[in-house]
Design a protein around this nucleic acid. Structure first.
Lengths: 255, 255
DNA sequence: TAGTATTTGTACGTATGTATA
DNA sequence: TTATACATACGTACAAATACT
């Protein structure tokens, strides 16, 4: 007992390496793209085995702080953690909480309105064309019976386009996160329901009127329309996919 | 060429194992505490090497989905990822984005009001006592010159207490996340500013009036007060800690 | 208190795949 | 095309931690 080899509660060596590398990144101010010591050097530096170093690098890779490349000039490089990593972690957390569609919309009603308001005055003609194309795509898919998921993706794409011009990374992240959540919900309820048609029509109606309000740069109209749109969407969504929400939040690392 | 051994873009085997295990957790509805196949079994199942399985388990461990234990009855167990893991990932992401105090408050003004509204009617007498104690603690610390961080923690604790009774895990998470962000911001700006006194007084004023509104279960008053409180707080905070926000978000695994 | 079985954690050596030059 | 540098994967042996007797 009372061996103080490394620390009171002898932590795993790989975790020690992870912390060291994190420290390097912070104190040396390493930027994305900077190269880290290669496997061989870390092995010699810590006098440990290959597997140990690999475990440490794997941990950093999961956190999104480094990426690994093979071949010459390969190795570990500092990376900028993407939104997907944060989204994955948040989904992991929510998977074990009780979360239903109503609660998702409780937040969505807030952030979508805010993001839309922030987009007023920031949209270029190119953006308008994209938004129009999105609406037309929904129009087109709407007539098919099978493209459930495609339709949902196209509908949500309208909102993602708006979020992309939002200068607030927190709001932007939340909108994308929620929309990804809603996109994956449709997979669970494969059954085609007639209410889905009305839902699609309502969406197109609101998207068109929102586009008008954006063109007029009428922020109060945008806020009002988006709020209505969200309340309407909540009504349809909770009716369609209400109780199944609690599953499948576990992110399946799309692409 | 044209070898289709595993997939077009030959993914790493350990990632494949990670996905499989995640799938097991979802489709078999595994709960925290449930045991996963042990190392040896996974090795035989996938016909791979020990290091490969260990890499996969390490990844899951970092995501907080499993914990590893040694000895008999040891192995990999399903775990419930805490909010800290999601918060850490989100911080890692925001570390590389441009985020200022104003943008934090853009979201905070929304969620704090919503959380407060959700708390109406859910507060027990025990909660009221905790909230009162929180206010009194702020009162007490407010007179000391050094307890900058302690004061901030105590102030934010009032809001965290409210969030704890919020039944919506998404809103609850966001409030806690934002408050942790604000708590850590005070460390960067060590300089004591006279404006801080007025800030503290305002906070106590609003907390007291909020408590009254909660006791009266007057939701519209709660919403109005919390909104005012947030606008006031934003004014003080951005004045005090405006531009320094962008540094040191990288989470250092606090315990 | 000690011993033993079980299972992870670490070390080492080797072979293979893959991207750069 | 060939050589090179590096990650990726395999297999074995041993150390360390824990539960049970």
């Amino acid at each position: 007992m009372h061996e103080l080899k490394r620390s009171p509660f002898r932590r795993k060596l790989s975790d020690h390496i992870v912390e060291d590398i994190k420290r390097w990144i912070v104190v040396q101010g390493l930027k994305p793209g900077d190269r880290l010591p290669k496997e061989r050097e870390l092995i010699e530096l810590y006098g440990c085995a290959k597997g140990t170093v690999r475990e440490a690098l794997k941990a950093l890779e999961v956190e999104g702080l480094v990426t690994m490349r093979t071949g010459p000039t390969g190795g570990a490089y500092v990376a900028e953690p993407g939104a997907n990593q944060a989204a994955r972690a948040l989904r992991n957390y929510l998977h074990f909480q009780k979360l239903d569609g109503h609660q998702i919309y409780e937040l969505r009603k807030l952030v979508e309105v805010e993001v839309a308001a922030a987009a007023v005055g920031r949209l270029t003609e190119a953006h308008f064309r994209e938004l129009e194309a999105s609406i037309e795509l929904c129009d087109h898919i709407g007539y098919e019976r099978d493209g459930q998921r495609e339709l949902r993706i196209a509908e949500l794409n309208f909102h993602n386009l708006l979020a992309d011009v939002c200068p607030n990374p927190l709001l932007q992240f939340m909108v994308h996160f929620i929309n990804d959540l809603l996109r994956d919900l449709v997979d669970l309820k494969k059954t085609y329901r007639p209410g889905r048609i009305q839902f699609g029509e309502d969406n197109r109606y609101y998207h068109r009127r929102l586009l008008e309000a954006f063109r007029a740069e009428d922020e109060s109209a945008v806020r009002r329309l988006m709020h209505e749109h969200m309340c309407n969407s909540e009504h349809h969504t909770t009716a369609l996919e209400a109780e199944v929400t609690q599953s499948f939040l576990l992110g399946f690392d799309e692409e």
